[in-house]
Each structure stands twice: as C-alpha cells, then as structure tokens.
C-alpha cells in the first residue's frame, strides 16, 4: 500500500510540479497518465526516493519516504525504470543485468544467473545477450531497461514510459509482462499512451499541472464522457463551435470526424460509446475551460 498525502514539489524558480497530491495506491497495476510536464515523473521520482518532496508525506509499504531510513528500506523493494535509462555501452546485456542484480542485493550467484537468463528470455534478447550494449537499438535498450527493473523480484515496480520506442508487437508483450507482474507486486505505470493504460490498468489517475484531475478505474473515467462523444459525417467544413476533434477519417462519401462536446443539431451527429482515450481528452479539456473549478480528486 502506498499512501500519498498532500504532496507538493516546487522546483527553484517557483515551478510547481506537484500541488497537494493525495491518493492511495493499492496492489495491482496503477496507471498514471497526463501530458508532458504534468508532474508524473516528479511523482514517480519521489516514490523511488530520488526526489525529496517540498511538503506532504509518502508512505511506501509502511516506510516513510521523507526519512533516510525509509528511503533505504524502500530501495530494497523497488524495481525502477526511469524515463531515460542509460546503459554502460561497453558491457554486454548479460553482464549489465548481472551487475544490476548484484547491486540490488541478489548475492547468490546461481539465483542471479537464473534470474538474468529468465529475464533475457522474457524480453526476447537471448540471441543478443552477449553483444555489447552500444550495439543495441533504442527498442532493445528499452527492453533491457525493463528486464533490469524486474531483477530481484521487486515488491514495487515503477516504470516511466516503458513502451516508448517499442514496436507494436513488443509493446503488447511488455504490457502483458507488466500485467503479469501486477499479480505479484504493485506496478505503477506512467505513460501518455492511453492504450497502454486501457489494456492493463484496473486503477488510474490523471494528473495535470501538478494536480489530480481524476482518480478511479477506467470504467468510471469512461462514464464521465458518456453522451459527449459523437461522429459527424460531412463533406463540408471541419466541425468547430467548441467541439474537440479526436480523429478524422477520410471516407468515399465525405469526412468522418469523431468529436467531443455537444454538437449543434445541423451537424447530424451520431452518439458513440466513448473510449478511454476520448474520456481522457474530455477530462483534460474540461480542466482547461476558463472559470471552471478543477475536478475534485476521487479518493
């Protein structure tokens, strides 16, 4: 259980990355979604013990992350994949994983070797595992990043944009892998790829400008946008009047727009069931309306 209470983080220059974030994260897979600069990475870095909050408290499995002892205790339970993970270019993948495993405290050589082999196989890099990392492509490096995060059977897995740079097939594999891990530990997945969330998370938060816009499960989020998503088939102008266009599809008899909002009657719009992406965009657009209160975070 992770408890976050009234968490704020202000960087020099009065930049507010987090503004009073309060939430509880249980076991399973938790999705953290929001645009670039929303505060996701700051929150992840605080949870990983890399960043000290300006105020508020964070408790990870009973360890107070504002204390040095709490951070150290959490490190022993943690698997972490940063947004931009670098690797030692002159080590092979096998050596790098072995190195990280021992630094994670997996001191028994047979256990370490078994874990490394399993993970190399899991991320499908067995054939390239003896090659130096400087010869790896971006996607291969990402997969090694994921493998190292899983070393040492962590109790808390924090992954920041894990599927960036991966091809579609690999993205699905990694998503499934993380979902499998979620049965054994708490996984916090930060991403701005809504598809990753919709396929794997049973619990999520939308964060923007340092605040929580939504907290709940994906179906709750979808409910928010129900009745707000439409398709409009037109050969005329692109729909506007406050409508947010989510997608545009060229058809033989015109252009089909998928829009969010309340279209005028002359558009002859057809209501459709919202996707998680529609709901996310709807929630984001509502938070940006002038003179509107920020939605209250759902506990």
């Amino acid at each position: 259980m992770i408890e976050i209470n009234n968490l704020t983080k202000t960087y020099s220059g009065n930049v507010h990355a987090l503004r009073g974030v309060t939430m509880t994260i249980g076991s399973g897979m938790f999705g953290l979604v929001g645009p670039n600069g929303a505060g996701k990475t700051s929150l992840m870095r605080i949870l990983a013990g890399l960043l000290r909050p300006s105020s508020g408290s964070v408790n990870v499995f009973g360890h107070d992350m504002t204390t040095s002892q709490g951070k150290q205790a959490t490190k022993a339970l943690l698997g972490y994949l940063p947004q931009e993970l670098g690797l030692y270019p002159n080590l092979t993948a096998r050596e790098f994983l072995d190195y990280i495993a021992i630094l994670k405290g997996v001191t028994d050589s047979s256990t370490r070797k078994r874990q490394v082999e399993e993970l190399v196989e899991m991320v499908r890099l067995s054939d390239a595992a003896n090659r130096r990392l400087k010869t790896y492509s971006g996607g291969m490096k990402r997969r090694i990043g994921i493998a190292q995060a899983l070393l040492g059977t962590p109790k808390l897995l924090i992954v920041d944009e894990p599927t960036v740079g991966l091809d579609p097939e690999e993205r699905v594999r990694i998503r499934n892998l993380l979902s499998d891990m979620a049965s054994r530990c708490t996984v916090i997945l930060s991403t701005h790829i809504i598809e990753d969330i919709s396929h794997s998370c049973n619990d999520l938060a939308i964060i923007n400008k340092g605040g929580v816009l939504f907290r709940g499960n994906p179906s709750d989020l979808i409910t928010r946008a129900r009745g707000k998503v439409w398709t409009i088939l037109t050969s005329g102008e692109r729909p506007n009047n406050g409508l947010a266009v989510v997608s545009t599809l060229q058809l033989h008899n015109g252009v089909q727009y998928r829009v969010l909002g309340t279209p005028d009657a002359h558009y002859n719009a057809t209501p459709v069931e919202p996707s998680l992406e529609d709901s996310y965009i709807w929630t984001m657009s509502q938070s940006q309306l002038p003179h509107q209160e920020m939605p209250i975070p759902v506990p």
Binding site: G49, L50, A76, L85, L87, Y88, P89, I100, K104, G105
Partner: peptide, 14 residues
C-alpha cells in the same frame, strides 16, 4: 551521469 545510469544507481540499495 553522462550515460544516464546514475538515476538507476541511486534507486539501488548500494
């Protein structure tokens, strides 16, 4: 730091 490994190392119990 330059390779980008530092952030990972800082999360390890070393």
């Amino acid at each position: 730091q330059q390779y980008g490994v530092r952030e990972l190392l800082d999360t390890l119990p070393v």
